[in-house]
Amino acid sequence: MNIFRLAGDLSHLAAIIILLLKIWKTRSCAGISGKSQILFALVFTTRYLDLLTSFISLYNTCMKIIYIGCAYATVHLIYMKFKATYDGNHDTFRIEFLIVPVGGLSFLVNHDFSPLEILWTFSIYLESVAILPQLFLISKTGEAETITTHYLFCLGVYRALYLFNWIWRFYFEGFFDMIAIVAGVVQTILYCDFFYLYVTKGEKVAIPS
């Protein structure tokens, strides 16, 4: 564990908690893409199946359970509890156009052709594009609530910090995972446009459609 990975995990946890609290407190999921949240729940489910097969550390196990729990709780709030506030007219990104290519790629490019490894690879590739429905929704509505922009900022920063973690691990441990690194670079690049607006626009972020 190094400072970049810990900071990344905490930023990721913060994003997940910010979103869950925002929906719960405001009793509304307006401006939130339910499709992205479904993709994140799928990412965590396919990545953390090793919860059933191996124990790495208490930290690792707790965080995985928290991530999976919050992801499904968020999907539940969006599609069940506060369904009336779900912005279905703007949340129209075709996620099958993400899941199918990512699924195919995870069969073609992976470290090991075993079920757990292919599912892990699928989750890595899917996570890199999972935010697209959310960014698409914001570009359609033309604006995002301040709290939503903080959520996106934390979510974007988390994988950027992981990139530094991989540089650290390569230099100090010789650890190097090309699949995670390439997907992490793609994921972070997708946020760049948003980062620019977040930093320059301060509060109201309006991604030009």
Partner: peptide, 10 residues
């Protein structure tokens, strides 16, 4: 090499 590193990242 990767395989002597468990997937210890989240």
């Amino acid at each position: 090499e990767l395989d002597d590193f468990e997937k210890d990242e989240l």
